[in-house]
């Protein structure tokens, strides 16, 4: 009975019509010690299938350690850059404070005094500008004489 069943499954197996469960049954039968004599020739086939399935991948899979390095590198680089920018602002902030503190010119509390000081400063400025403009008059004279010659 048992043997009949195995023979049936075996026939189906070679037709490619067995299910996984039936194939497992065959594997089990052929791995047992009491295999019928006339079926002994199939034993290595199923033995082989079971044996091969035991093979394992032994090597580690290298998962782009390079990429990880790049990631760490970029993190380190950005920290350095941030520190650099931070330090720059920190130092330069301090120094501008100092310049302002040093060049503090004071202020006037009295509006009249402030007006006078401003007028004085503006007069100084316009005097200097006038000195500059005086030399422009020479150019005007030069142009006049040029016009005489070329008779416009």
């Amino acid at each position: 009975m048992e043997l009949n069943k195995i023979e049936n499954i075996l026939e189906k197996y070679f037709q490619g019509e067995t299910s996984i469960a039936e194939e497992n049954e065959l594997k089990e039968y052929f791995s047992s010690p009491n295999v019928a004599q006339h079926l002994k020739q199939y034993q290595p086939i199923f033995g082989y299938f079971s044996q091969v399935k035991e093979q394992k991948m032994t090597q580690e899979i290298p998962l782009q350690t390079k990429k990880r390095k790049v990631a760490w590198l970029s993190i380190a680089a950005s920290i350095v850059i941030l520190l650099g920018i931070g330090a720059f602002y920190y130092v330069s902030d301090n120094s501008t404070d100092n310049v302002v503190a040093k060049s503090e010119l004071g202020t006037y509390d009295n509006p009249e005094e402030a007006l006078a000081a401003t007028q004085k400063a503006l007069a100084l400025l316009s005097n200097n500008v006038n000195v500059g403009i005086e030399s422009v008059h020479y150019i005007k004279e030069y142009e006049q004489s040029k016009n005489k010659i070329f008779k416009q």
Binding site: Q55, M57, Q59, I61, L63, Q64
Partner: peptide, 27 residues
């Protein structure tokens, strides 16, 4: 992972080649 390795070994025959193939596929 091991199924990939065994299929590669079936076709490529050598264990080393199969390991290379497995690594390649996984990467």
């Amino acid at each position: 992972k091991d199924k990939v390795f065994r299929l590669a070994k079936r076709l490529l025959t050598s264990t080393e080649e199969a390991e290379d193939a497995t690594q390649e596929v996984m990467v």
